[in-house]
Simulated assay, not measured.
Amino acid sequence: MKSNLFLKVLVALIFILAVVGMIMVANGGEDTSPEMASAASFMVNFAVVLLGLAAFLAVVMSLLSLFKNPAALKKTLLGLVVLGVLLAVSYFASSDGAVTGANNESLLEAGSVSKWSETGLNYSYILLVVGGVFFVWDLLKSLIKS
């Protein structure tokens, strides 16, 4: 019962802060006025704090749930190992050469940043292919069952 009351008070507080921020934006005046900058800054900071709080709570609650269920923890750790292996494959398949644009001008110099950029692209491609294969596999399984 106490947690229910706490959540109601928390939601009410967030709602009041959001309404105050919206009123500040509505009364801010011109786009370049200091009042508008202050109101926009308040709303951006408010949104960032809420996003950070939501992310933190999601991670903490997920971890608590995993520790309560050892079978799920084992599956999660196995999934993280597979993702790590795929990232390692992407990293070692990437070159650290300079990245050039369409008109042959250098966008990124050769080095670490270039290597990690290509690693991210390769990792995305691998995950796209793996996801596509599982999607088609699941689609075919459902077609065969029905």
Rank of each mutant, 00 (worst) to 15 (best):
L83K: 01
G97N: 04
S112K: 09
N45M: 10
K141L: 03
N69Q: 08
K145E: 07
V82D: 06
L57N: 02
V89M: 07
Y125P: 04
V25E: 00
M61T: 12
S94F: 15
A47W: 12
I126L: 13
Y123D: 00
S33R: 11
V129P: 01
F56P: 00
L78A: 12
K145S: 11
Y125Q: 06
P70V: 05
L78M: 10
V20H: 12
A102N: 08
P70K: 03
L128I: 13
K68H: 06
N27R: 14
V49L: 09
M24Q: 09
V129F: 15
A37D: 00
E105I: 07
T100F: 15
V48N: 09
S94C: 11
L5Y: 12
N103H: 12
I14C: 07
V82T: 08
S38A: 13
A12H: 10
P70I: 00
L80V: 09
L87T: 04
M61I: 09
D96A: 13
N4P: 01
Y125V: 15
V25T: 02
G111D: 01
A39K: 10
L5N: 11
D138S: 14
W116R: 02
G29T: 00
S33E: 02
L121A: 12
A26N: 03
L78F: 10
V9G: 07
A12C: 03
